[in-house]
């Protein structure tokens, strides 16, 4: 079945600027697999080294966050809308580490 995948602006650099794609898949996993197969450079931002969906990537199937329903195996209906939604987070945290940022502007 064919679903609409809505891509956030952060990942549109991998889709030639397209905000919406039409992909085949019976589950969210199949649709995301189709997405990263077609746009392999996006994979590192979607999935971690173990192949799990990154914690800060949420996927909605219709109105449902898939983490609240069937996860990546959430079944999809023909014509359904799947949306990738970043879960933005961060902060100064413990204040001890600065990462590898190279300086200030």
């Amino acid at each position: 079945m064919t679903v609409r995948l809505l891509v956030p602006s952060a990942l549109r650099g991998f889709t030639d600027g397209k905000a919406e794609l039409r992909l085949e898949g019976a589950t969210v996993a199949e649709v995301l697999e189709g997405f990263v197969s077609a746009h392999p450079d996006a994979k590192n931002h979607m999935f971690d080294e173990k192949g799990a969906l990154r914690e800060f990537i949420n996927v909605f199937a219709g109105e449902d966050n898939i983490r609240d329903v069937g996860g990546l195996e959430t079944p999809l209906k023909d014509g359904e809308t799947v949306m990738i939604v970043p879960a933005i987070a961060g902060g100064r945290d413990d204040g001890l580490a600065r990462g590898r940022a190279g300086g200030r502007n």
């Binding site: 956030p8 602006s9 952060a10 990942l11 549109r12 650099g13 931002h45 914690e55 800060f56 970043p86 879960a87 933005i88 987070a89 961060g90 902060g91 100064r92 945290d93 204040g95 580490a97 600065r98 990462g99 590898r100 940022a101 200030r104």
Partner: peptide, 14 residues
């Protein structure tokens, strides 16, 4: 300055 936590959850483009 971005923290490691900022980095862990960052996305490109933004």
């Amino acid at each position: 300055i971005p923290s490691p936590r900022d980095l862990e959850r960052a996305l490109p483009f933004y």
